[in-house]
Design a protein around this nucleic acid. Structure first.
Length: 474
RNA sequence: GGCCCCAUCGUCUAGAGGCCCAGGACACGGCCCUCUCAAGGCUGAAACACGGGUUCGAAUCCCGUUGGGGCCA
Protein backbone atom coordinates (compact mmCIF):
# COMPACT_ATOMS: atom_id res chain seq x y z
CA UNK A 1 0.00 0.00 0.00
CA UNK A 2 1.30 3.42 -0.90
CA UNK A 3 0.11 4.86 2.39
CA UNK A 4 2.17 2.60 4.62
CA UNK A 5 4.63 4.85 6.35
CA UNK A 6 8.36 4.21 6.50
CA UNK A 7 10.23 3.71 9.73
CA UNK A 8 10.99 7.36 10.21
CA UNK A 9 8.27 9.84 9.38
CA UNK A 10 9.44 13.42 9.00
CA UNK A 11 6.94 16.01 7.81
CA UNK A 12 7.00 19.77 7.68
CA UNK A 13 4.75 22.78 7.57
CA UNK A 14 6.37 25.59 5.62
CA UNK A 15 4.44 28.86 5.73
CA UNK A 16 5.54 32.08 4.03
CA UNK A 17 5.46 34.88 6.59
CA UNK A 18 3.75 37.25 4.18
CA UNK A 19 0.53 37.32 6.14
CA UNK A 20 -1.37 35.73 8.98
CA UNK A 21 -1.98 32.03 9.34
CA UNK A 22 -4.94 31.25 7.13
CA UNK A 23 -7.48 28.54 7.83
CA UNK A 24 -6.20 26.71 4.74
CA UNK A 25 -2.65 26.83 6.04
CA UNK A 26 -3.84 25.85 9.49
CA UNK A 27 -5.51 22.76 8.10
CA UNK A 28 -2.38 21.82 6.18
CA UNK A 29 -0.38 22.28 9.38
CA UNK A 30 -2.90 20.18 11.30
CA UNK A 31 -2.80 17.33 8.80
CA UNK A 32 1.00 17.32 8.93
CA UNK A 33 0.93 17.40 12.71
CA UNK A 34 -1.65 14.61 12.95
CA UNK A 35 0.30 12.49 10.49
CA UNK A 36 3.50 12.98 12.47
CA UNK A 37 1.89 12.26 15.83
CA UNK A 38 -0.01 9.26 14.49
CA UNK A 39 3.19 7.70 13.16
CA UNK A 40 5.28 8.89 16.10
CA UNK A 41 7.32 10.90 13.65
CA UNK A 42 8.78 14.38 13.60
CA UNK A 43 6.89 17.57 12.82
CA UNK A 44 9.10 20.33 11.49
CA UNK A 45 8.32 24.00 11.08
CA UNK A 46 10.14 25.86 8.35
CA UNK A 47 9.80 29.51 7.45
CA UNK A 48 9.82 30.21 3.72
CA UNK A 49 10.96 33.80 3.84
CA UNK A 50 12.88 34.14 0.60
CA UNK A 51 10.40 36.77 -0.51
CA UNK A 52 12.09 39.37 1.64
CA UNK A 53 10.01 42.28 0.48
CA UNK A 54 6.80 40.78 1.88
CA UNK A 55 8.10 38.71 4.80
CA UNK A 56 8.11 40.27 8.25
CA UNK A 57 9.08 39.35 11.78
CA UNK A 58 5.58 40.29 12.92
CA UNK A 59 4.06 37.73 10.62
CA UNK A 60 6.44 35.05 11.81
CA UNK A 61 5.47 35.81 15.40
CA UNK A 62 1.77 35.77 14.56
CA UNK A 63 2.03 32.45 12.75
CA UNK A 64 3.89 30.82 15.63
CA UNK A 65 1.31 32.19 18.08
CA UNK A 66 -1.54 30.82 16.00
CA UNK A 67 0.07 27.37 15.82
CA UNK A 68 0.62 27.38 19.57
CA UNK A 69 -2.97 28.45 20.14
CA UNK A 70 -4.11 25.45 18.09
CA UNK A 71 -1.77 23.24 20.10
CA UNK A 72 0.30 22.21 17.09
CA UNK A 73 3.70 21.88 18.68
CA UNK A 74 6.70 21.36 16.44
CA UNK A 75 9.71 19.16 17.15
CA UNK A 76 12.14 21.11 15.02
CA UNK A 77 12.05 24.72 13.88
CA UNK A 78 12.21 28.24 15.21
CA UNK A 79 13.50 29.67 17.41
CA UNK A 80 16.35 27.24 16.66
CA UNK A 81 18.53 28.58 13.85
CA UNK A 82 18.58 27.05 10.38
CA UNK A 83 14.85 26.77 9.78
CA UNK A 84 14.45 29.93 7.76
CA UNK A 85 15.25 29.94 4.09
CA UNK A 86 17.15 33.20 4.39
CA UNK A 87 19.57 31.33 6.65
CA UNK A 88 20.04 28.58 4.10
CA UNK A 89 21.16 30.44 1.01
CA UNK A 90 24.54 28.65 0.91
CA UNK A 91 22.74 25.33 0.72
CA UNK A 92 20.82 26.38 -2.37
CA UNK A 93 23.97 27.69 -4.03
CA UNK A 94 25.87 24.45 -3.27
CA UNK A 95 23.15 22.25 -4.66
CA UNK A 96 22.83 24.42 -7.74
CA UNK A 97 26.54 24.14 -8.31
CA UNK A 98 26.37 20.37 -7.99
CA UNK A 99 23.71 20.23 -10.66
CA UNK A 100 25.69 22.51 -12.94
CA UNK A 101 28.91 20.53 -12.45
CA UNK A 102 27.09 17.30 -13.25
CA UNK A 103 25.68 18.81 -16.43
CA UNK A 104 22.13 18.55 -15.13
CA UNK A 105 21.72 22.31 -15.14
CA UNK A 106 23.02 25.02 -17.44
CA UNK A 107 23.22 28.78 -17.68
CA UNK A 108 20.90 30.69 -19.92
CA UNK A 109 21.12 34.30 -21.02
CA UNK A 110 18.00 34.54 -23.12
CA UNK A 111 16.65 38.06 -22.75
CA UNK A 112 13.17 38.46 -21.26
CA UNK A 113 11.88 39.94 -24.49
CA UNK A 114 12.81 36.80 -26.40
CA UNK A 115 11.17 34.57 -23.80
CA UNK A 116 8.08 36.72 -23.84
CA UNK A 117 7.84 36.52 -27.63
CA UNK A 118 8.16 32.75 -27.49
CA UNK A 119 5.48 32.57 -24.82
CA UNK A 120 3.12 34.60 -26.96
CA UNK A 121 3.87 32.47 -29.99
CA UNK A 122 3.18 29.28 -28.04
CA UNK A 123 -0.07 30.70 -26.84
CA UNK A 124 -1.07 31.63 -30.38
CA UNK A 125 -0.40 28.03 -31.42
CA UNK A 126 -2.51 26.91 -28.42
CA UNK A 127 0.40 25.09 -26.87
CA UNK A 128 1.97 25.10 -23.44
CA UNK A 129 4.88 27.49 -23.32
CA UNK A 130 8.08 25.56 -22.92
CA UNK A 131 11.56 27.04 -22.88
CA UNK A 132 13.17 26.44 -26.27
CA UNK A 133 16.42 25.01 -24.93
CA UNK A 134 18.37 27.57 -26.91
CA UNK A 135 21.13 27.82 -24.27
CA UNK A 136 21.33 24.14 -23.40
CA UNK A 137 24.64 23.52 -25.16
CA UNK A 138 26.12 26.96 -25.33
CA UNK A 139 28.39 26.38 -22.35
CA UNK A 140 27.59 29.73 -20.76
CA UNK A 141 29.12 30.56 -17.36
CA UNK A 142 26.64 33.16 -16.19
CA UNK A 143 22.95 33.99 -16.35
CA UNK A 144 19.97 32.14 -15.00
CA UNK A 145 20.56 28.50 -14.12
CA UNK A 146 18.07 26.10 -15.68
CA UNK A 147 17.40 22.46 -14.91
CA UNK A 148 17.66 20.16 -17.93
CA UNK A 149 14.38 18.26 -18.34
CA UNK A 150 14.23 15.13 -20.54
CA UNK A 151 12.45 15.85 -23.82
CA UNK A 152 10.50 12.65 -23.78
CA UNK A 153 8.78 10.57 -21.17
CA UNK A 154 6.46 10.84 -18.27
CA UNK A 155 6.79 11.71 -14.62
CA UNK A 156 4.15 10.19 -12.41
CA UNK A 157 3.32 11.66 -9.03
CA UNK A 158 2.00 8.86 -6.82
CA UNK A 159 -0.08 11.08 -4.65
CA UNK A 160 -1.39 9.61 -1.40
CA UNK A 161 -4.66 11.51 -1.77
CA UNK A 162 -5.16 11.90 -5.51
CA UNK A 163 -3.64 8.65 -6.74
CA UNK A 164 -1.24 8.53 -9.67
CA UNK A 165 -1.05 11.73 -11.71
CA UNK A 166 0.98 11.60 -14.91
CA UNK A 167 2.72 14.58 -16.47
CA UNK A 168 4.13 14.47 -19.96
CA UNK A 169 7.63 15.93 -20.14
CA UNK A 170 6.60 17.80 -23.25
CA UNK A 171 4.46 19.94 -20.96
CA UNK A 172 7.40 20.72 -18.70
CA UNK A 173 10.18 23.10 -19.47
CA UNK A 174 13.73 23.65 -18.33
CA UNK A 175 12.76 25.67 -15.29
CA UNK A 176 14.92 28.19 -13.54
CA UNK A 177 16.78 27.16 -10.38
CA UNK A 178 18.72 30.37 -9.83
CA UNK A 179 17.77 33.71 -11.30
CA UNK A 180 20.46 35.68 -13.08
CA UNK A 181 21.03 37.66 -9.88
CA UNK A 182 21.87 34.37 -8.14
CA UNK A 183 18.74 34.14 -5.99
CA UNK A 184 17.11 30.72 -5.85
CA UNK A 185 13.53 30.20 -7.02
CA UNK A 186 10.76 28.93 -4.79
CA UNK A 187 10.53 25.44 -6.28
CA UNK A 188 14.26 24.90 -6.00
CA UNK A 189 14.44 26.02 -2.36
CA UNK A 190 11.65 23.63 -1.47
CA UNK A 191 13.45 20.69 -3.04
CA UNK A 192 16.76 21.49 -1.36
CA UNK A 193 15.08 22.08 1.99
CA UNK A 194 13.04 18.91 1.86
CA UNK A 195 16.09 16.90 0.84
CA UNK A 196 18.39 18.33 3.49
CA UNK A 197 15.75 18.09 6.19
CA UNK A 198 15.17 14.45 5.20
CA UNK A 199 11.43 14.98 4.77
CA UNK A 200 9.67 11.67 4.21
CA UNK A 201 6.18 12.95 3.30
CA UNK A 202 5.30 16.26 1.72
CA UNK A 203 1.75 17.14 2.74
CA UNK A 204 0.79 20.46 1.22
CA UNK A 205 -1.87 22.35 -0.70
CA UNK A 206 -3.26 21.15 -3.97
CA UNK A 207 -1.97 24.30 -5.66
CA UNK A 208 1.48 22.69 -5.64
CA UNK A 209 0.50 19.52 -7.47
CA UNK A 210 1.39 21.02 -10.83
CA UNK A 211 4.87 21.88 -9.56
CA UNK A 212 5.51 18.41 -8.25
CA UNK A 213 6.81 16.74 -11.44
CA UNK A 214 9.34 19.55 -11.85
CA UNK A 215 10.47 18.98 -8.30
CA UNK A 216 10.65 15.21 -8.70
CA UNK A 217 12.90 15.67 -11.72
CA UNK A 218 15.08 17.90 -9.60
CA UNK A 219 15.34 15.30 -6.83
CA UNK A 220 16.41 12.77 -9.42
CA UNK A 221 18.98 15.11 -10.94
CA UNK A 222 20.37 15.61 -7.46
CA UNK A 223 20.52 11.86 -6.97
CA UNK A 224 17.91 11.63 -4.22
CA UNK A 225 14.78 9.54 -3.96
CA UNK A 226 11.77 11.84 -3.87
CA UNK A 227 9.56 11.79 -0.75
CA UNK A 228 5.95 10.68 -0.73
CA UNK A 229 3.47 13.37 -1.69
CA UNK A 230 -0.03 14.15 -0.47
CA UNK A 231 -1.84 17.15 -1.91
CA UNK A 232 -4.66 18.45 0.21
CA UNK A 233 -7.58 20.17 -1.49
CA UNK A 234 -8.23 23.89 -1.28
CA UNK A 235 -10.65 25.54 1.09
CA UNK A 236 -13.28 27.62 -0.70
CA UNK A 237 -15.57 30.48 0.26
CA UNK A 238 -19.37 30.22 0.00
CA UNK A 239 -19.11 31.39 -3.64
CA UNK A 240 -16.88 28.36 -4.37
CA UNK A 241 -13.89 30.57 -5.02
CA UNK A 242 -10.67 30.19 -3.14
CA UNK A 243 -11.14 31.45 0.40
CA UNK A 244 -9.85 34.98 0.80
CA UNK A 245 -10.29 38.06 2.97
CA UNK A 246 -13.32 39.21 1.06
CA UNK A 247 -15.14 36.18 2.49
CA UNK A 248 -14.70 37.63 5.99
CA UNK A 249 -12.57 36.18 8.72
CA UNK A 250 -9.98 33.75 7.40
CA UNK A 251 -7.04 34.30 9.72
CA UNK A 252 -6.80 31.87 12.60
CA UNK A 253 -6.19 34.70 15.03
CA UNK A 254 -9.49 36.31 14.01
CA UNK A 255 -11.30 33.22 15.26
CA UNK A 256 -9.27 33.29 18.44
CA UNK A 257 -10.26 36.93 18.95
CA UNK A 258 -13.89 35.99 18.35
CA UNK A 259 -13.59 33.59 21.26
CA UNK A 260 -13.88 30.38 19.28
CA UNK A 261 -12.35 27.56 21.32
CA UNK A 262 -9.15 26.18 19.83
CA UNK A 263 -10.39 22.64 20.42
CA UNK A 264 -13.36 23.43 18.18
CA UNK A 265 -11.17 25.00 15.53
CA UNK A 266 -8.97 21.90 15.41
CA UNK A 267 -12.00 19.60 15.31
CA UNK A 268 -13.62 21.65 12.57
CA UNK A 269 -10.50 21.83 10.44
CA UNK A 270 -9.90 18.11 10.83
CA UNK A 271 -13.43 17.33 9.62
CA UNK A 272 -13.01 19.60 6.61
CA UNK A 273 -11.86 17.07 4.06
CA UNK A 274 -11.27 14.24 6.46
CA UNK A 275 -13.82 11.99 8.10
CA UNK A 276 -14.18 8.84 10.11
CA UNK A 277 -17.61 7.37 9.48
CA UNK A 278 -20.38 9.47 10.98
CA UNK A 279 -18.40 10.83 13.91
CA UNK A 280 -18.40 14.62 14.21
CA UNK A 281 -16.67 15.30 17.51
CA UNK A 282 -13.20 14.02 18.19
CA UNK A 283 -10.83 14.55 21.05
CA UNK A 284 -7.28 15.39 20.12
CA UNK A 285 -6.22 11.87 21.14
CA UNK A 286 -8.89 10.35 18.92
CA UNK A 287 -7.73 12.47 16.00
CA UNK A 288 -4.16 11.32 16.46
CA UNK A 289 -5.22 7.70 16.77
CA UNK A 290 -7.66 7.71 13.84
CA UNK A 291 -6.06 10.08 11.34
CA UNK A 292 -5.05 8.43 8.11
CA UNK A 293 -3.92 10.48 5.14
CA UNK A 294 -5.71 8.11 2.78
CA UNK A 295 -9.05 9.11 4.33
CA UNK A 296 -8.51 12.70 3.24
CA UNK A 297 -10.85 13.71 0.42
CA UNK A 298 -9.41 15.06 -2.82
CA UNK A 299 -12.25 17.47 -3.45
CA UNK A 300 -12.35 21.09 -2.38
CA UNK A 301 -14.43 22.08 0.65
CA UNK A 302 -16.44 25.20 1.45
CA UNK A 303 -15.64 26.78 4.79
CA UNK A 304 -18.78 26.85 6.94
CA UNK A 305 -18.50 29.38 9.75
CA UNK A 306 -21.85 28.31 11.19
CA UNK A 307 -20.76 24.75 11.70
CA UNK A 308 -17.55 25.94 13.33
CA UNK A 309 -19.64 27.98 15.77
CA UNK A 310 -21.81 24.97 16.51
CA UNK A 311 -18.73 22.94 17.35
CA UNK A 312 -17.40 25.73 19.49
CA UNK A 313 -20.62 25.67 21.50
CA UNK A 314 -20.42 21.91 21.82
CA UNK A 315 -16.98 22.29 23.38
CA UNK A 316 -18.21 25.13 25.55
CA UNK A 317 -21.06 22.99 26.88
CA UNK A 318 -18.71 20.17 27.74
CA UNK A 319 -16.21 22.35 29.53
CA UNK A 320 -16.42 22.62 33.31
CA UNK A 321 -16.84 25.89 35.19
CA UNK A 322 -13.30 26.29 36.51
CA UNK A 323 -11.79 25.69 33.09
CA UNK A 324 -14.20 28.11 31.48
CA UNK A 325 -13.42 30.73 34.12
CA UNK A 326 -9.77 30.50 33.22
CA UNK A 327 -10.48 30.78 29.48
CA UNK A 328 -12.83 33.66 30.04
CA UNK A 329 -10.51 35.92 31.99
CA UNK A 330 -8.46 37.34 29.12
CA UNK A 331 -11.63 37.98 27.13
CA UNK A 332 -13.24 39.76 30.06
CA UNK A 333 -10.27 42.04 30.37
CA UNK A 334 -10.42 42.77 26.66
CA UNK A 335 -14.12 43.59 26.92
CA UNK A 336 -13.22 46.25 29.47
CA UNK A 337 -14.75 44.34 32.39
CA UNK A 338 -13.10 43.78 35.73
CA UNK A 339 -11.96 40.20 36.19
CA UNK A 340 -13.74 38.92 39.32
CA UNK A 341 -11.43 37.92 42.14
CA UNK A 342 -13.56 34.90 42.92
CA UNK A 343 -12.81 32.41 40.21
CA UNK A 344 -15.19 29.81 41.61
CA UNK A 345 -17.99 32.36 41.28
CA UNK A 346 -16.94 33.09 37.69
CA UNK A 347 -17.04 29.36 37.02
CA UNK A 348 -20.63 29.14 38.24
CA UNK A 349 -21.54 32.18 36.16
CA UNK A 350 -19.99 30.50 33.12
CA UNK A 351 -22.01 27.36 33.75
CA UNK A 352 -25.23 29.34 33.36
CA UNK A 353 -24.01 30.94 30.15
CA UNK A 354 -22.33 28.17 28.24
CA UNK A 355 -25.36 26.73 26.51
CA UNK A 356 -26.41 30.21 25.42
CA UNK A 357 -23.27 31.12 23.53
CA UNK A 358 -21.13 29.85 20.69
CA UNK A 359 -17.97 31.65 21.69
CA UNK A 360 -16.29 33.13 24.74
CA UNK A 361 -17.07 36.65 23.56
CA UNK A 362 -20.74 35.77 23.02
CA UNK A 363 -20.74 34.40 26.53
CA UNK A 364 -19.50 37.66 27.92
CA UNK A 365 -22.07 39.65 25.97
CA UNK A 366 -24.88 37.36 27.10
CA UNK A 367 -23.72 37.64 30.69
CA UNK A 368 -22.61 41.24 30.85
CA UNK A 369 -25.17 41.96 33.56
CA UNK A 370 -23.27 39.66 35.92
CA UNK A 371 -20.35 42.05 35.87
CA UNK A 372 -22.04 45.43 35.74
CA UNK A 373 -25.47 46.85 36.50
CA UNK A 374 -27.76 47.39 33.54
CA UNK A 375 -27.34 50.94 32.28
CA UNK A 376 -30.69 50.88 30.52
CA UNK A 377 -33.73 48.68 30.15
CA UNK A 378 -34.84 47.26 26.83
CA UNK A 379 -37.34 50.04 25.90
CA UNK A 380 -40.02 47.91 24.28
CA UNK A 381 -39.90 45.47 27.17
CA UNK A 382 -39.97 48.24 29.76
CA UNK A 383 -43.04 49.69 28.08
CA UNK A 384 -44.78 46.38 28.35
CA UNK A 385 -43.52 45.06 31.69
CA UNK A 386 -43.00 48.09 33.92
CA UNK A 387 -46.62 48.87 34.69
CA UNK A 388 -48.41 50.34 37.65
CA UNK A 389 -49.26 46.82 38.66
CA UNK A 390 -45.67 45.74 38.70
CA UNK A 391 -44.71 48.60 41.02
CA UNK A 392 -46.82 47.16 43.79
CA UNK A 393 -45.52 43.68 43.10
CA UNK A 394 -41.96 44.93 43.15
CA UNK A 395 -42.41 46.52 46.56
CA UNK A 396 -43.85 43.32 47.91
CA UNK A 397 -41.09 41.20 46.39
CA UNK A 398 -38.36 43.44 47.73
CA UNK A 399 -39.74 43.01 51.24
CA UNK A 400 -39.98 39.26 50.84
CA UNK A 401 -36.46 39.00 49.45
CA UNK A 402 -35.07 41.02 52.32
CA UNK A 403 -36.57 38.50 54.66
CA UNK A 404 -35.74 35.32 52.73
CA UNK A 405 -33.62 33.16 55.04
CA UNK A 406 -31.54 31.46 52.32
CA UNK A 407 -30.76 33.38 49.15
CA UNK A 408 -30.44 30.29 46.96
CA UNK A 409 -31.97 29.36 43.60
CA UNK A 410 -34.40 26.74 45.03
CA UNK A 411 -35.51 29.07 47.81
CA UNK A 412 -35.98 31.92 45.33
CA UNK A 413 -37.96 29.73 42.99
CA UNK A 414 -40.22 28.58 45.83
CA UNK A 415 -40.80 32.17 46.82
CA UNK A 416 -41.65 33.28 43.30
CA UNK A 417 -44.03 30.37 42.76
CA UNK A 418 -45.76 31.10 46.00
CA UNK A 419 -46.12 34.78 45.08
CA UNK A 420 -47.45 33.94 41.62
CA UNK A 421 -50.03 31.60 43.12
CA UNK A 422 -51.06 34.19 45.68
CA UNK A 423 -51.51 36.80 42.98
CA UNK A 424 -53.22 34.36 40.67
CA UNK A 425 -50.76 35.00 37.83
CA UNK A 426 -48.43 32.77 35.87
CA UNK A 427 -44.82 32.51 36.95
CA UNK A 428 -43.73 34.09 33.70
CA UNK A 429 -45.71 37.22 34.48
CA UNK A 430 -43.81 37.63 37.69
CA UNK A 431 -40.43 36.57 36.37
CA UNK A 432 -40.18 38.76 33.30
CA UNK A 433 -40.40 42.17 35.00
CA UNK A 434 -37.81 41.01 37.52
CA UNK A 435 -35.56 39.68 34.78
CA UNK A 436 -35.80 43.02 33.04
CA UNK A 437 -35.07 44.86 36.28
CA UNK A 438 -32.00 42.79 37.04
CA UNK A 439 -30.49 42.18 33.60
CA UNK A 440 -31.98 44.95 31.51
CA UNK A 441 -33.18 42.36 29.02
CA UNK A 442 -35.94 39.84 28.47
CA UNK A 443 -33.66 36.88 27.88
CA UNK A 444 -31.15 35.54 30.34
CA UNK A 445 -30.07 32.36 32.10
CA UNK A 446 -32.64 30.94 34.55
CA UNK A 447 -33.75 33.83 36.72
CA UNK A 448 -33.36 32.21 40.12
CA UNK A 449 -29.82 31.15 39.42
CA UNK A 450 -29.06 34.65 38.22
CA UNK A 451 -30.43 36.19 41.42
CA UNK A 452 -28.58 33.71 43.59
CA UNK A 453 -25.31 34.41 41.81
CA UNK A 454 -25.81 38.14 42.05
CA UNK A 455 -26.51 37.79 45.77
CA UNK A 456 -29.09 39.39 47.96
CA UNK A 457 -27.47 42.80 48.25
CA UNK A 458 -26.88 43.30 44.54
CA UNK A 459 -30.28 41.90 43.61
CA UNK A 460 -32.05 44.27 45.97
CA UNK A 461 -30.01 47.22 44.75
CA UNK A 462 -31.06 46.49 41.17
CA UNK A 463 -34.69 45.99 42.09
CA UNK A 464 -34.72 49.30 43.93
CA UNK A 465 -33.10 51.00 40.94
CA UNK A 466 -35.80 49.54 38.70
CA UNK A 467 -38.45 50.67 41.14
CA UNK A 468 -37.08 54.20 40.92
CA UNK A 469 -36.93 54.08 37.13
CA UNK A 470 -40.49 52.80 37.09
CA UNK A 471 -41.58 55.71 39.24
CA UNK A 472 -39.82 58.18 36.94
CA UNK A 473 -41.71 56.87 33.91
CA UNK A 474 -45.06 57.85 35.32
C1' G B 1 -5.07 29.25 -24.08
C1' G B 2 -2.31 24.61 -22.55
C1' C B 3 -1.72 21.11 -18.66
C1' C B 4 -3.51 19.12 -13.97
C1' C B 5 -7.21 18.22 -10.08
C1' C B 6 -12.28 17.81 -8.49
C1' A B 7 -17.90 16.59 -8.85
C1' U B 8 -23.54 12.67 -3.25
C1' C B 9 -28.87 17.15 0.29
C1' G B 10 -27.75 24.78 0.69
C1' U B 11 -22.86 23.22 3.50
C1' C B 12 -19.36 19.28 5.69
C1' U B 13 -19.63 14.27 4.61
C1' A B 14 -20.84 8.29 4.90
C1' G B 15 -20.80 5.24 0.78
C1' A B 16 -14.68 1.36 -1.74
C1' G B 17 -20.84 -3.09 -7.66
C1' G B 18 -26.04 -5.71 -4.77
C1' C B 19 -26.69 -4.00 2.65
C1' C B 20 -28.84 2.67 -0.72
C1' C B 21 -36.15 4.36 -3.99
C1' A B 22 -28.78 6.81 -0.41
C1' G B 23 -27.01 7.31 6.16
C1' G B 24 -25.03 11.17 9.74
C1' A B 25 -23.97 16.36 11.04
C1' C B 26 -24.67 21.89 10.47
C1' A B 27 -28.32 25.22 8.85
C1' C B 28 -33.83 25.50 7.98
C1' G B 29 -39.41 24.11 9.28
C1' G B 30 -42.91 21.67 12.86
C1' C B 31 -44.10 19.50 17.64
C1' C B 32 -42.76 18.55 22.84
C1' C B 33 -40.32 20.43 27.29
C1' U B 34 -40.22 25.31 29.67
C1' C B 35 -39.84 31.45 34.35
C1' U B 36 -37.36 34.14 29.26
C1' C B 37 -33.59 32.82 25.93
C1' A B 38 -31.06 28.78 25.06
C1' A B 39 -30.01 23.67 25.57
C1' G B 40 -32.47 18.97 24.94
C1' G B 41 -36.03 15.20 22.75
C1' C B 42 -39.07 13.78 18.59
C1' U B 43 -40.06 14.99 13.60
C1' G B 44 -40.16 17.19 8.38
C1' A B 45 -38.20 19.00 3.83
C1' A B 46 -33.58 18.41 1.21
C1' A B 47 -28.58 15.22 -2.92
C1' C B 48 -25.90 10.63 -6.30
C1' A B 49 -24.33 17.31 -12.35
C1' C B 50 -25.61 15.40 -17.47
C1' G B 51 -25.01 11.74 -21.52
C1' G B 52 -23.13 7.25 -23.16
C1' G B 53 -21.06 2.58 -22.07
C1' U B 54 -19.33 -2.13 -18.89
C1' U B 55 -22.35 -5.54 -15.80
C1' C B 56 -27.67 -9.93 -14.21
C1' G B 57 -27.05 -5.35 -11.23
C1' A B 58 -23.66 1.33 -10.74
C1' A B 59 -23.76 6.81 -6.38
C1' U B 60 -19.78 3.25 -6.72
C1' C B 61 -15.89 1.04 -12.85
C1' C B 62 -14.73 3.33 -18.07
C1' C B 63 -15.43 7.34 -21.84
C1' G B 64 -17.37 12.02 -23.05
C1' U B 65 -19.94 16.69 -21.87
C1' U B 66 -20.82 20.46 -18.46
C1' G B 67 -19.47 23.05 -14.19
C1' G B 68 -15.85 24.50 -10.41
C1' G B 69 -10.78 24.92 -8.82
C1' G B 70 -5.37 25.07 -9.52
C1' C B 71 -0.61 25.76 -12.10
C1' C B 72 1.95 28.03 -16.18
C1' A B 73 1.48 34.00 -14.59
Amino acid sequence: MASSAPASVRVRFAPSPTGHLHVGGARTALFNWLFARHHRGTFILRIEDTDRSRSTEEHIGAILDALRWLGLDWDEGPPAPGYRQTERLDLYRDHAERLRAAGRAYYCDCPPELLEAQRKAAEARKETFRYSGRCRDRGLTAGALRLRIPDEGLTVVHDLINGPVAFDHRQLDDWILLRSDGTPTYNFCVVVDDVTMRISHVIRGNDHLSNTPKQILCYEALGYAPPEFAHVSMILGPDRHRLSKRHGATAVEAFRDQGVLPEAMVNYLARLGWSHGDQEIFTREELVALFDIKDVSPSAAVFDHTKLLWLSQEYLKRMDGPTLAERLEPYLARAGLAVPGDRAWLGRVADTLKERAHTLTEMIEAGRFYFERPTRYDPAAAQKLFTGESAARLDRLIRRLEALPEFTAPALEALFREQAAALGVKLVDLAQPIRLAVTGRTASPPLFEVLALLGREETLARLRAARAALEARR
